[in-house]
Nucleic acid binder design. Structure first.
Length: 893
RNA sequence: GGGCGAUUGGCGCAGCGGUAGCGCAGAUGCCUUACACGCAUAAGGUCGGGGGUUCAAAUCCCUCAUCGCCCACCA
């Protein structure tokens, strides 16, 4: 309580940073300032290259999860830095209509009211979807704002928006006319619950424990006494649609059977035995039952051998009228029934356990049914070739690089893409049919009547795969195919595409293909960042069913948006997974408070301040400025590597371990002295200003809040548009000598503290200390004796090359110094001896290693000269330390 | 069946060719008037096993093991 009063009298800042009070207010000022737009409220430099990012559009079905929080933080960090560097920036934001996902949600909602989509009809259902979108779409945008994301909110995109629909139509029609889009009757992946086709990569395969049923198919006429052959299958119910049995052409066991007929049990139909290379004689019995309508391989064989294709399932996976007495049974009921009947007939030879991969719908997890139907496809190979080339030659690079191999592997084996979906929510396929004269065409504008015969036409009932629309995101969001896209050099290609690894195929690859196709071969983005997947703290995927998901907004509430962002970025190393434990954010929240308090300290010590640039009066000043330059260098250097954890660590260390732990402490005494106060104030302000700018992209809110309070000259309206501190702008401060000098000071202070701790001497007890060192070191220390006196509470400090150890004292030996702390009546000589001996033994081991190394001829002959020199130096230093320690030990008597 | 990733102090992670670092937890002492979401000090690791390359390996290569991902039409 008294704390607060002290605080108010200082800088009007509470002593713990409270983000909830600040974040919303700051976000509003950013938005009002127009900094999220391309010209950054007038602060962008139009002469610089544009920097653009398109956000991976979240599904309107849901709210943002930890993966989004991470991904969007990464993007915001990048775009904010680019903006501060002066680039015209634009971060395109928007949502994806998410065909199946949304349709499912809305169907569930209707189900709760006891209705199906058929009750409300196609139009009514689509209306419901729009309502859903209006509700959840805004939630997502609010979440993004809560995280501090600096998106171009005034230009929000949606994959079902009118303009976007134009792009879809153009693409579809263009590809249709060039033959890349075609209609075909093929085996596709059918989800019987969603009642729609799916693309191959929308199917998730999982190994499941199953069985291999061995079934006897009687021969019409016995061959050499053989009355039946045995087929092995994992799906006995599909036998209802069998139209042949295949064996390998070179399989001697069955050679004589090729061309013969067998009787398909239960169906009592004669089907042929034929030979096909596809069959693996070593698997099962070497005889394969062939169901062309329900298995992709069987389909191919059926094509090769002109077999009939009998569909035995309805769209919801029940046996249809082709299944005879089994009609109406659900597929697994049918399996039971078929097996029971075979058993009864004595045709079930035996059953083996057999694990196999079963496909599941990526949306509802139902088991996929391979199903023969008419669908629309995109021929992918021609599109893939230039897209592979673009990554191969580095026009697009992945980070981490290893994902490029994943991309290549998929792209080089790419198969045609089934793009039609039997859904209502989505872009309806723009193909029109005339049932009168048979005319059909893909059209960019709707038509009612047939241009050939004038009869009424109908539009294709199906909609397009959601990914068909999201693949156009990098150019459709900029107005393509309209006139505005002529200014595409202002934003296309974009710079960075940051996303999760699980949509490399579904989305990233397809964006590269379609964008290059429609944008004169130009890639849609140059850098792809594949960020780690956020797992729970014990390494499981976060999911609704496990209930282990975390809402970013809850984290923001507890740790602040900055705390959450920084905590996440600290974990973005090159690995593929990130085990996330909320506790990990504590350090980042504490870091925010640390910075807050550093600012509180500086702002509370501004009496007599007159604005001005940094003044490097002392080594301590030179040191912190040099370290600041070092930080800028570190951040500059990693700009291409996307080492977010590395940058975050560098910032953390600078603020906490250099600025707060040392420079702030150094400055305490100097702020009280008339002759040093102003320079110290100016240095503090300068360093904090620059460091806050460097931290801003990662922790936007707290940096803005503090920065606004800094008494800077000619500062702009927001740190968001303040100049980014490049290394070049700070290079003049690099000062190795000052860094060495302060290092000596730190050694003395740390040594004295160590002695204090060992002898349990309170900080309030002033000590007598002597430091022995060479002339140069003594000169450095002498110039900074006030700092040592203050920070180590030394009452009498002697610094001299000839300093001698007082009898009653504890000695500390460093590489450069001998430090004696006088301890009248306190010294435990035995303990001192033990400690110094341990210290010496450690050094002896080190010396031994170095000796061995330096007497190794191979090392001397082959190692780099600087490495050898370093080893020599280390040896010298170790030897010197050993000698001095031994000297101390012998003096202890 | 292929491919990728992980394996470093109790826990979570850096380091990726020159004698092991960070955060958290734990220990000890401190309300040192910016901060107890803090300060100080000390302790803690033969870098999964084995082999190889090299003057030198946590770091490169091979192999094994464990865990986890992805891709694949063997019914």
């Amino acid at each position: 309580m008294s704390d607060k009063q002290v605080v108010q009298s200082k800088a009007g800042m509470p002593k713990t940073y409270d983000p909830s009070e600040i974040e919303g207010r700051i976000f509003d000022t950013w938005y009002a300032g127009g900094y999220f737009s391309r010209d950054a409220g007038g602060y962008a430099n139009p002469d610089l290259d544009p920097y653009t990012i398109v956000i991976p559009p979240p599904n309107v079905t849901g709210t943002l999860h930890m993966g989004h929080a991470l991904n969007d933080t990464i993007q915001d960090t990048l775009i904010r830095k680019a903006r501060m560097q002066g680039h015209p920036t634009r971060w395109i934001v928007g949502t994806d209509h998410a065909g199946i996902a949304t349709q499912n949600k809305v169907e569930q909602k209707l189900a709760k009211e006891g209705k199906t989509r058929f009750d409300v009809g196609r139009e009514g259902f689509i209306d419901e979807c729009w309502k859903w979108r209006d509700e959840y779409g805004s939630t997502i945008i609010e979440q993004l704002k809560g995280m501090g994301c600096s998106c171009d909110y005034d230009n929000e995109q949606f994959t079902m928006a009118d303009g976007y629909a134009k792009a879809i139509r153009r693409v579809f029609c263009d590809w249709y006319k060039s033959g890349l889009v075609y209609r075909g009757n093929r085996i596709i992946n059918w989800c019987p619950r969603c009642t729609t086709a799916l693309a191959d990569d929308e199917v998730e395969h999982e190994d499941e424990a199953g069985h291999l049923w061995h079934i006897r198919y009687p021969l019409v006429e016995p061959v050499d006494g053989l009355e039946y052959i045995i087929v092995a299958t994992t799906r006995p119910e599909t036998m209802l649609g069998d139209t042949g049995v295949a064996v390998h052409p070179d399989d001697d066991r069955y050679k004589d059977l090729v061309g013969k007929m067998v009787v398909l049990p239960l169906v009592n139909k004669e089907i042929p035995v034929f030979a096909d290379d596809y069959v693996d004689p070593s698997f099962g019995t070497g005889c394969v039952k062939v169901t062309p309508a329900h298995d992709p391989n069987d389909f191919e064989m059926g094509e090769r051998h002109n077999l009939e294709k009998i569909n035995i399932f309805t769209e919801d996976a029940h046996v249809n009228s082709n299944g005879g007495k089994y009609e109406g049974l659900e597929r697994y009921e049918a399996r039971e029934a078929v097996i029971a009947d075979l058993e009864e007939l004595g045709l079930l030879d035996h059953i083996e356990d057999h694990d196999h991969a079963v496909g599941h719908c990526y949306r509802c997890h139902s088991v996929i049914e391979p199903w023969l139907s008419d669908q629309w496809f995109v021929s992918m190979k021609p599109l893939a070739i230039p897209a592979i080339e673009a990554v191969r030659d580095g026009r697009v690079t992945f980070s981490p690089k290893r994902w490029e191999n994943v991309y290549f592997q998929w792209m080089e084996n790419i198969r045609d893409w089934c793009i039609s979906r039997q859904l209502w929510w989505g872009h309806r396929i723009p193909v029109f049919y005339c049932d009168e004269c048979g005319w059909m065409d893909a059209l960019e504008e709707d038509v009612d009547t047939c241009p050939v015969c004038g009869a009424k036409v109908r539009q294709d009932e199906d909609v397009l795969d959601t990914w068909f629309s999201s693949q156009l995101w990098p150019f459709a969001t900029f107005g393509w195919p309209d006139e505005g896209f002529e200014h595409r050099e202002d934003f296309y290609p974009t710079q960075v595409l940051s996303t999760a690894r699980d949509i490399i195929f579904l989305w990233v690859a397809r964006m590269i293909m379609s964008s290059m196709h429609f944008c004169d071969g130009d890639v849609p983005f140059t850098d792809v960042i594949i960020h780690p997947t956020v797992l729970d703290k014990i390494g499981r995927r976060m999911s609704k069913s496990l209930g282990n998901g975390i809402d970013p907004l809850d984290l923001i509430k507890d740790y602040g948006a900055d705390g959450m962002r920084f905590g996440l970025l600290l974990q973005v190393t090159g690995t593929q997974d990130m085990k996330f434990d909320e506790k990990k954010l504590e350090g980042s929240r504490n870091f925010a408070t640390k910075i807050w308090n550093a600012a509180r300290f500086v702002l509370g010590n501004l009496e007599g301040y007159v604005p001005g640039g940094p003044e490097a009066l002392t080594d301590a000043d030179k040191w912190i400025l040099s370290r600041l330059a070092g930080l800028a260098k570190r951040l500059d250097e990693q700009k291409d590597g996307y080492d977010f954890a590395g940058s975050a660590h560098a910032l953390y260390e600078f603020f906490w371990n250099e600025l707060c732990d040392w420079y702030l402490e150094f400055s305490k005494g100097r702020l009280r002295e008339e002759d040093t106060r102003l320079a110290t104030q100016r240095n503090l302000i300068f360093v904090i200003d620059q460091a806050l700018r460097m931290l801003h992209p990662m922790m936007p809110f707290i940096t803005e809040e503090i920065w606004q309070k800094l008494p800077l000259q000619d500062k702009g309206p927001s740190i968001m548009v303040a100049q980014w501190p490049s290394f070049a702008s700070l290079e003049r401060f690099v000062d190795d000598e000052a860094e060495r000098s302060v290092e000596l000071v730190r050694q003395v202070i740390a040594s004295v503290r160590s002695v204090r701790s060992r002898y349990q001497i309170g900080n309030k007890v002033g000590l007598e200390v002597m430091v022995k060192a060479d002339e140069d070191a003594c000169a450095s220390l002498e110039a900074q004796r006030d700092l040592i006196a203050k920070m180590a509470n030394v009452e009498h400090l002697t610094i001299a090359p000839s300093a001698e150890k007082p009898k009653a004292s504890s000695a500390m030996i460093t590489d450069d110094l001998e430090i004696f702390v006088v301890l009248e009546g306190l010294v435990d000589f035995e303990a001192e001896r033990t400690r110094l001996s341990k210290e010496r033994d450690k050094l002896l081991k080190e010396k031994e290693k170095l000796d061995r190394k330096l007497s190794n001829e191979g090392f001397l002959a082959k190692a780099a000269p600087e490495v050898i020199a370093k080893s020599r130096e280390d040896l010298e230093s170790a030897e010197s330390s050993i000698a001095r320690i031994e000297n101390q030990i012998s003096e202890l008597g």
